[in-house]
Amino acid sequence: MRCEDIKRFASLYIDGEFDELEGARFEDHLEHCETCRDMIQSTRVFQQALVERLNPPRMPRAVRDRILEAVDAELSAAPRPWIWKVPMAAAASIVLAVGIYAALPGVGENAEAEEVETLVEESVAVHEAALPPEVEGNGDAVRGFLAEKAHLNLRPPIEENDSTRLLGVRLTRIGKSRAVLYHYLHNNRSVSVVQIPRRHLETLRGNRQLIPASTRVLYDGARRGYNITLFEGSGSTNTVVSDMPSRELRKLIPASL
């Protein structure tokens, strides 16, 4: 290694980005070169001094208390209508109960409304958290991943074109159902779609509904500053979340899926 390389890669070394071997090669040079040793040392000392100068006391007590209070309020808020928030032992009877309810006029719709509410709430939370995709790439890469690695027979919910790009997907869960989170970029605005296999809703409805040929919008509204459209196609239920105007958002929904 030459002094030049040392200078060029000093940050990598100081920031601890090198592996053991790389670090050892770097140190070999430092051992024999006083100039480089001094340079590294003074950079280190500069950074340490900077941190010491900036390290503020902990946050003010009053601020901490106010935030903790808000956190506590959020944690003890009345549970949202999450239907899977039921102890496992009771789960079987719930499925049965839903089956019966679904046969009664009006009650099945109530269960569906709750399901929609859940999907909307959790999809917004997922969009806000903006977790990075597990697989990056366009429709082809994503389809391959879903079929081969995740064994999910699902198709990307939004068509790709010049203004709409699929950036990648992430596997997640919504309640008991496996779900896929799609990251799209539409005219440079971020759009998330949470997709769950259709089976999940069918259980709820007692398998009585016919599979629609065209997509059906179940919810269209706004929440916490985002616009949301929830639609179902033949194989999946999809919740689209973005800060785009809802009219623009609706245009992304395919006629069939």
Binding site: M59, V63, R66, I67, A70, V71, E74, L75, E121, E122, V124, A125, V126, E128, A129, L131, T172, R173
Partner: peptide
């Protein structure tokens, strides 16, 4: 900064099932 910190915590809680 206080508002942003609080908002971040609340968003994290809402997404904590993830």
């Amino acid at each position: 900064a206080e508002e942003l910190t609080q908002e971040t915590m609340l968003k994290a809680i809402r997404a904590s099932f993830q």
